[in-house]
Design a protein around this nucleic acid. Structure first.
Lengths: 205, 205
DNA sequence: CCATTATCTTTACAGTGTAAAGTTATTCTT
DNA sequence: AAGAATAACTTTACACTGTAAAGATAATGG
């Protein structure tokens, strides 16, 4: 066990090391050789568990989707009683994950350049998240908080809005003037309020 | 002129070579040495014009914003008579640019990792585009096609929606089932119609 | 016309992904 | 339990990357 041979759980150790590097040094510093060194293993050792760098990145991306799901589903369960608040807080959880772990978020959503199809783990986590969004939106539709019609199309519309806002924020694309005028949460709420149907008598602090 | 010394317009030639590589081989193949070889110059020659790779990427990104502006402003001018159509067609031009030149789009919006501030050309083009969007949205507000209120905040909301849709499309994040059911344009229209105020008597084919 | 300077080449180095062959420890078979 | 097969890891190697430093060349400005 003290020797380097047969680490035991090298695959996961490499993923964890990748996450650490990602959060400490950023996406530019994420290399196969560095994660290997980090775990204390030769630079070719990862190839016993990952076909190539893309495969490791895909695993890290799948982990990103997994953590995103944990955050979002926690927000969903904490607000199961009010569909409107549930939508807002799940969206907010999504944004927060992205802002707290920007590089992990980037890897998750644009790190696996293509061929996501080759990584079933990734696809599974992606599907799980989408299903959760469908559920939240469906509840809102049932309460007349969102327009009727194809739910999946509506999910894409809402998801696009949140996702795009994050990308513009992370990419520093928004004019500084706007950033000083509004908080991130205000921008998200403005976004969602464009879609949510306002009912008299509602209270939304 | 036949010799390699004093190429004449090496800086632009390198950018053009970068664009060619980007469209032909993708973002992974974009390297300083390759653009240099492509132009027929030594691998260190680019350093006379660009401080580092980031600087070249920033120039390519600025060019991306420039082309995006050309496409979008053309659509704006072609539909100057009808604000609603103008919004839709400018948005569609935006989407089309992204789908026709996905790698150039990616470089433009997530290639300059950070420090965009160091590249005034890039910032200028970015601002130009934002101003155009503000103009289009302002027209829609004047015609009661979009809700009143802070125009820039509204622009961010709309921009986020379009931008996010593109990212999800380019990142292959949308479930295949939805993609077979709706065209890209239908998804964009669904997105915009969530925001646009419907007036009786309007015709929107 | 000569010196300066911008532009480009050559050489060099550390870091990257990955292939191939060798080494070690585990597991499987009998 | 002993040996064979195999999975996990190391070593060595190579092509490619960004970039620094020093040298060569051609245009320019006094």
């Amino acid at each position: 066990m003290t020797d380097n041979y047969h680490h035991g759980d090298l695959k996961n150790a490499l993923i964890q090391a990748g996450l650490t590097i990602l959060s400490q040094e950023g996406i530019q510093s994420l290399s196969l050789r560095k994660v290997a060194k980090y775990v204390g293993v030769s630079h070719a050792a990862p190839y016993a568990h990952f076909a190539d760098k893309q495969a490791l990145v895909a695993a890290i991306a799948a982990e990103g989707y997994k953590r995103l799901y944990e955050q979002v589903s926690a927000a969903a369960q904490a607000n199961a009683d009010d569909p409107r608040t549930q939508l807002i807080e799940t969206a907010w959880a999504y944004v927060q994950f992205a802002l707290y772990s920007p590089d992990h978020f980037k890897v998750t959503f644009s790190g696996v350049v293509e061929h996501e199809h080759d990584y079933p783990d990734y696809l599974e986590q992606a599907k799980k998240n989408f299903t959760l969004m469908v559920k939240v939106v469906t509840a809102c539709q049932a309460y007349q908080l969102l327009p009727q019609g194809d739910t999946e199309l509506l999910v894409i519309g809402i998801w696009s809005g949140i996702h795009g806002l994050i990308h513009l924020l992370l990419g520093n694309q928004l004019p500084g003037a706007v950033l000083t005028r509004y908080s991130t949460r205000e921008m998200l709420l403005a976004q969602l309020n464009q879609l949510l149907i306002s009912h008299d008598g509602d209270s939304h602090p």
